[in-house]
Design a protein around this nucleic acid. Structure first.
Lengths: 111, 111
DNA sequence: ACGGGATGTCAGAGAAATCTGACACGGCTC
DNA sequence: GAGCCGTGTCAGATTTCTCTGACATCCCGT
C-alpha cells in the first residue's frame, strides 16, 4: 500500500471502501490503537455483524489487517489494525486510471 | 477545489462520487476536451439519462461544471468540463476527517 | 409541416449496499 | 451447569444506487 499510480480496477474499490462514514471512523479508531472486534463495536456504537461487514470491505480493500490471536488463557480474540497508505488523487491520475478500466466497454472510445 | 484538509462531511460524498467506473471515465473524457452532454453520451456509449445522473453526482461533488450555452444559431447546448482538484489521502487525513463527521453518533466516543 | 438534434425530467425495473436480530460455537469463572 | 464474553455467520427487511424507456420542450433546416 503506497503511492504508486493506481489502476482503475483497484482505485474504484479502494475509493468505494473509503466512501463511508462508518468505515472512516473505523479506520480513525485503528490508527493509534490496535483493537479487537467486540471492543471496537462498543467504542463505535454499532452492531457486531455490521462492523464485521465494514471490516471485511476494509480488509478486501487492503486498508485493514486482521489477526486471530489465541490468548494464553485459551480464548481467541481477533485484533484488527489499519494499514498505512498514501493516495494522491488528481485529474491526471484519474484520467490515467480510467484507461486501465476493464469491463463492459466496447473500447470504441477513440476519437 | 484544492489540497486543503477535507472535512469528513465533504470527503465522503467526494469519494463516493469518484468510486464509480462510469464517473471516472466521464472525468477522464473531460480532462482535455470540453464537451456537450449528448456528444459525451455518444462517446461513452451510455444513455443520456444515465449520463445525466452521473453528471449530477459529479456536479454535486464539485468535480464538474456545467454551462448552458445558447449558440448564435439559437440552439442551446450544455457544455461540461472537469474541475481541477487535488486530494492527498492518508491515514492521518482520514483520522482528522472522521472527527468532523456529523450525524447519528451520540459522540460518546471518548475513552 | 416535418424530421433531426439538442435539453431536461419521469416512473419503474433491477441490482447492490446497508443494517438488524437471531443463531451456533468455544472457553472462562463462579 | 449457568452466565458471560469472545468469534463467526445467516436470513431477511430496508434503503440506496443504477439503468432504461418514454415523454415534453425548443430551435433549426428542408
Amino acid at each position: 500500500m503506497s503511492g504508486t499510480p493506481p489502476t482503475g480496477d483497484e482505485l474504484v474499490p479502494l475509493l468505494a471502501a473509503l466512501a463511508n462514514p462508518h468505515r472512516l471512523r473505523i479506520l480513525a479508531a485503528l490508527v493509534q490503537r490496535r483493537t479487537y472486534v467486540s471492543e471496537l463495536a462498543r467504542r463505535l456504537h454499532m452492531n457486531r455483524p455490521l462492523l464485521y461487514m465494514h471490516l471485511q470491505k476494509l480488509e478486501a480493500a487492503g486498508l485493514v489487517t486482521g489477526e486471530l490471536v489465541t490468548a494464553p488463557d485459551g480464548s481467541s480474540v481477533k485484533y484488527v489494525q489499519a494499514v498505512p497508505f498514501t493516495l494522491a488523487l488528481d485529474l491526471d491520475v484519474i484520467a490515467l486510471a480510467a484507461q486501465t478500466l476493464t469491463g463492459p466497454v466496447p473500447a470504441v472510445e477513440r476519437e
